[in-house]
C-alpha cells in the first residue's frame, strides 16, 4: 500500500505543501528573522539584534493592551462557558421548542466580527445615550463590557452546541444509579455530569481562550481601541504598531511584539490543554 502510494506523493501532497509554504512556512520564519531587524519592507532588513524586543517590552501601550487582553480573556472564559453550560442543561430538558432555541442561539456565530462589532456599537451607543452616559468613543468601561457582551452573544451558541453534544454522551444509567443511591440534582451535576464532560469543557475553554486572546475584528469594529488606546487588545496593538506608527523602527518592534504574542498564545493554550486534560475521566 505505502509503496504504491509513494509514487503519487507529488500529486497528493504537493499542492497543499506549496500553498502552505507560501501561506505559512515562509512568512513565519521570515517574520521570526525580521523580529531581529530594522526594516520597512522585506527587502531592506538590517540585523540589529534583540533591541526590538527591548523596545517592545518597554512600550507602555503594549503592556497596557496586554493587561486589557488578559482581563477580557478571563471574564470571557468564565461568562461564556458558564452561560453556555447552563443553556445546554436547559435545552437538554424535556422542553417544547428546544431545536428552535438552539437554532436561534447559534445564529450570531455565523455573522462575522466586523459586522457584529458595528451592530453592537450602534446598540450600545443607543443605550448609553438613553442613560445619559458618554458614548463608546469616550467610555473605556463601556468598551470593556461591550466587548464581553458582544463575545457572549457571538460565542455562547457555539459552546452550547459542544456542551449539548457532551451532555448527550453522559450515560443515562450512570445518572439513574446515582439517583437510586440518593444523590440530588446538585450532586449529580458536580459529581457525575461535570467530570464526565471534561473533554467538552477542555475544548470549549481552549476555544474561548484562544479566540479571546487573538480577538481583533470585534475590537476594531466596536471601539477601535478608543478612547486613546484604553480598549486596545494585543492583536490590535500589533496591527497599529505595524501600520500606524511613523518612523522606521516600528515595523521591527511590531514584529517582535507579534513573536512575543505568539509565544504567549501557544504557551497558555498548551498549559490549559494539559491542565484540563489531566482532569478527564473515563466512565
Amino acid at each position: 500500500m505505502e509503496k504504491a502510494l509513494k509514487k503519487y506523493a507529488w500529486i497528493f501532497v504537493l499542492p497543499t505543501l506549496a500553498a502552505f509554504t507560501i501561506g505559512f512556512i515562509i512568512p513565519f520564519f521570515e517574520g521570526l528573522y525580521l523580529s531581529f531587524c530594522q526594516f520597512t519592507t522585506v527587502g531592506n532588513a538590517k540585523f540589529i539584534g534583540i533591541s526590538n524586543y527591548i523596545n517592545a517590552l518597554g512600550d507602555p501601550q503594549f503592556i497596557q493592551s496586554a493587561w486589557f487582553t488578559i482581563c477580557v480573556t478571563v471574564v470571557n472564559i468564565l461568562a461564556i462557558n458558564i452561560l453556555a453550560f447552563a443553556l445546554a442543561m436547559a435545552l437538554t430538558e424535556k422542553l417544547k421548542g428546544t431545536n428552535f432555541f438552539r437554532t436561534i442561539f447559534f445564529m450570531p456565530n455565523l455573522i462575522g466580527g466586523i459586522v457584529l462589532g458595528y451592530i453592537w456599537q450602534i446598540l450600545i451607543n443607543g443605550i448609553l445615550s438613553l442613560c445619559a452616559q458618554p458614548l463608546l468613543k469616550l467610555n473605556p468601561t463601556a468598551g470593556f463590557w461591550g466587548i464581553i457582551i458582544l463575545m457572549c452573544w457571538q460565542q455562547i451558541g457555539y459552546m452550547m452546541i459542544i456542551y449539548i453534544a457532551g451532555l448527550q454522551n453522559v450515560p443515562d444509567d450512570l445518572i439513574e444509579a446515582a439517583k437510586i443511591d440518593g444523590a440530588n440534582d446538585w450532586q449529580i451535576l458536580w459529581k457525575i455530569k461535570i467530570p464526565m464532560m471534561m473533554p467538552s469543557i477542555t475544548i470549549c475553554v481552549f476555544l474561548t481562550l484562544t479566540n479571546s486572546l487573538k480577538l481583533f475584528d470585534q475590537n476594531l469594529a466596536l471601539t477601535a481601541g478608543e478612547p486613546s488606546h484604553a480598549t486596545e487588545m494585543l492583536a490590535m496593538n500589533i496591527y497599529n504598531t505595524f501600520y500606524f506608527r511613523a518612523g522606521p523602527a516600528w515595523k521591527g518592534i511590531g514584529q517582535a511584539k507579534s513573536v512575543i504574542f505568539s509565544i504567549v498564545v501557544i504557551l497558555i493554550g498548551f498549559l490549559q490543554l494539559k491542565s484540563t486534560r489531566s482532569k478527564e475521566v473515563q466512565a
Binding site: F20, I22, G23, F24, I26, P27, F28, E30, G31, L34, T41, V42, T210, L213, K214, F216, A235, I238, Y239, F242, K251, G254, Q255, S258, V259, F261, S262, V265, I266, G269
Partner: peptide, 19 residues
C-alpha cells in the same frame, strides 16, 4: 500553524503575496 496568531505572519504574508 493552527495556534499561531495571524499577526505573526501578517506583514510577511502580505509582502510575499505581493511579490
Amino acid at each position: 500553524s493552527m495556534v499561531v496568531p495571524f499577526q505573526m505572519v501578517m506583514f510577511t504574508l502580505s509582502q510575499t503575496a505581493d511579490i
